[in-house]
Design a protein around this nucleic acid. Structure first.
Length: 565
RNA sequence: CGGGGCGUAGCGCAGACUGGUAGCGCGUUUGGUUCGGGACCAAAAGGUCGAGGGUUCAAAUCCCUCCGCCCCGACCA
């Protein structure tokens, strides 16, 4: 491909709305352009790389025995009502009406569609197990689209669904997908961390996320320094050092703490470290107030709290609700004397000599003993694990926090969807059984951006060979016909060898071509110029390396081939 | 949805407080010189200043309404 015959609009400066490196580079290298919030056009370079990711996925899905289908994005409301998700996902779905006033949705995912299909088409144990997948555009009305393709409103996803005979069978399907995912991300040049994940609203009982470690990642991860344990913070646990009962000590004392509301202010005022304070948060669980207790140096995990309470809706109480529940303004809530239910983080069990709000304006209590003063509370794991906590799996390990971009997610779903759609089969004994499902997603467009986030330098993108839009960039440097013709001939030979090459045939100075070549990030750069041509040679350089080598012109193609064999 | 910020040429920005009819760098076009890490000289094109309304002799600038975009938070398969 000649650069002058395509559209690769590189930018010297990144648009001001691009925040993270990968987003800036996708804009600067002319991969994508924005149409609106969370809506992007793929330009030729972006599309070529995207197709490469898709190709890798298709190859690995085929190897794992999954079957490709393509389902509609536009879906009738009814199938969403079948599973009750028309209500639960209402806010995140784009909903539209057709000319007959029928309610439709733009599919945010396809469990309903595939299960509806399978319920009609598969009905014998002889036809199972089966795994279907598609690569399809999804639509989600994200509260806040951000970071380019990382969280878009329209994006491409590979989603796969397994239909199994029983739970053992599901385990095998799950394993096959898990292994396929490892291969896919490896071939994409990504280093991924596989973590235990929360199953969220999808239901099901086991789940792993494939995370690309990156500072810009939206997900928090905790991992053990010495064993294999790693989990999304949504679910990550910590080992509790056996609850040593601290002596209760002196009785409760009121202390005036004027205007000290936050943990930081109270800590400073009482000269106590945050971990000796009890943070009391008032929540409304399905509309009813409840107090959640945790140590001052901890962050509450709402997913854990919701599970512990067994409620569906959980919102932090507003100032008025806090005041009516505790009798004190926000900042002075404490567990003692509360009439609402109290639930406490297990890490507080046995602790003493703590401080807590007194449920009275400008007042805190000191010498609080959890056992003596808050004994009636229920204890559950309610907080996020953090760096330095003990590993829940191995004795010695300490946890550390990291951030990641979720590029893949595998779930054991169970029967939530197969039951709703009566996806069942007859077994060898003519008994009717419900299929067991798994589902497996890869954010394809997000993966593309994650590759750039993980593989770039100050000059631009460094494409891994498997996904590069072009494997080689050919730069005719000298402004004469010999040089240009040599470059074009080289391109032909590369194509004949099955290597996609991009020839920078623009009438530009060397510096411009070098800068753009670095920005575009093709794995191999071939410089053709009078200087080396005089000796019958061209210059080869890997994008990932600083040094180049001179090779005879006629050997150039074979040298490129060996670099990637 | 709450908080904050932004919207002026393709991109990055100044001008706004203190109203007087729009500017800089890069990019683009033409001509010339140049040619190994974003060249130089000369000439030029390109803007309903996000939209609508108001105040004023006069609005990019002041006021009101709306729209779009970004960040933090809440939220979320």
């Amino acid at each position: 491909m000649r650069l002058s015959n395509t559209l690769i609009p590189t930018l010297r400066d990144a648009p001001q709305d691009a925040e993270i490196e990968s987003h800036k580079l996708m804009m600067r290298a002319g991969l994508i352009r924005k149409l609106g919030a969370g809506l992007y056009t793929f330009l030729p370079m972006g599309l070529r790389a995207l197709r490469n990711v898709e190709r890798i996925i298709r190859e690995e899905m085929a190897r794992a025995g999954a079957i490709e289908v393509l389902m509609p994005s536009l879906q009738p409301r009814e199938i969403w009502e079948t599973t009750g998700r028309y209500e639960t996902l209402k806010k995140s779905m784009f909903r539209i009406r057709d000319r007959q006033d029928r309610d439709m949705v733009l599919g945010p995912t396809h469990e309903e569609v595939i299960t509806e299909l399978v319920s009609h088409e598969l009905n014998s144990y002889r036809q199972l197990p089966r795994t279907f997948y598609q690569i399809q555009t999804k639509f989600r009305d994200e509260i806040r689209p951000r970071f380019g393709l990382m969280r878009a409103r329209e994006f491409i996803m590979k989603d796969a669904y397994s239909f199994d005979l029983d739970w053992d069978c599901l385990d095998r399907s799950y394993q096959a997908m898990y292994a396929a995912y490892q291969r896919i991300f490896e071939r994409c040049g990504l280093r991924v961390k596989i973590v235990e994940a929360d199953t969220g609203a999808m239901g099901g009982n086991a789940s792993h996320e494939f995370m690309v470690l990156a500072e810009a990642g939206e997900d928090g991860i905790v991992e053990c320094e010495s064993c294999a344990y790693a989990a999304n913070v949504e679910r990550g646990e910590r080992a509790l050092t056996p609850a040593v009962e601290e002596p209760a000590g002196a009785g409760l004392v009121d202390v005036a703490t004027p205007n000290a509301r936050t943990i930081e202010e109270v800590s400073k005022f009482l000269k106590l470290p945050a971990r000796r304070l009890i943070k009391t948060l008032i929540y409304l669980a399905d509309g009813k107030p409840v107090a959640a207790l945790l140590a001052g140096d901890r962050d509450l995990n709402e997913i854990k709290l919701r599970k512990a309470l067994g409620c569906t809706e959980l919102v932090l109480a507003d100032a008025a609700q806090v005041e009516s529940a505790t009798g004190a303004p926000v900042g002075f809530a404490g567990p003692i004397g509360l009439t609402i239910p109290v639930i406490a983080d297990a890490g507080l069990q046995g602790r003493a000599s703590l401080a807590a709000g007194a449920n009275k304006a400008d007042t805190h209590l000191v010498h609080v003993s959890v056992t003596r003063d808050v004994g009636a509370a229920r204890f559950h794991d309610l907080v996020n694990a953090k760096t330095g906590d003990a590993c829940p799996r191995c004795a010695a390990g300490k946890l550390r926090e990291m951030r990641g971009i979720e590029v893949g997610h595998v779930f054991k779903l169970g029967t939530k969807y197969s039951e709703a759609f009566h996806a069942a089969y007859l077994d060898a004994n003519k008994e009717k059984k419900t299929m067991i499902m798994g589902c497996y997603g890869i954010g394809v467009t997000r993966t593309l951006q994650a590759i750039i986030e993980q593989s770039h330098d100050e000059n631009g993108i460094i494409w891994p060979a498997g996904v590069a839009p072009f494997l080689a960039a050919v730069l005719p440097l000298s402004p004469n016909e010999t040089c240009m013709n040599t470059a074009l001939k080289l391109e032909e030979e590369l194509i004949r060898a099955g290597i996609d090459a991009l020839v920078d045939d623009r009438d530009e100075r060397p510096g411009v071509k070098f800068k753009d070549a670095d920005l575009l990030g093709c794995p191999i750069r071939i410089v053709v110029s009078d200087r080396s041509l005089a000796e019958g040679k061209v210059e080869l350089r890997k994008r990932s390396e600083k040094t180049s080598q001179l090779v005879p012109l006629e050997e150039a193609v074979s040298r490129v081939e060996t670099l990637f064999s």
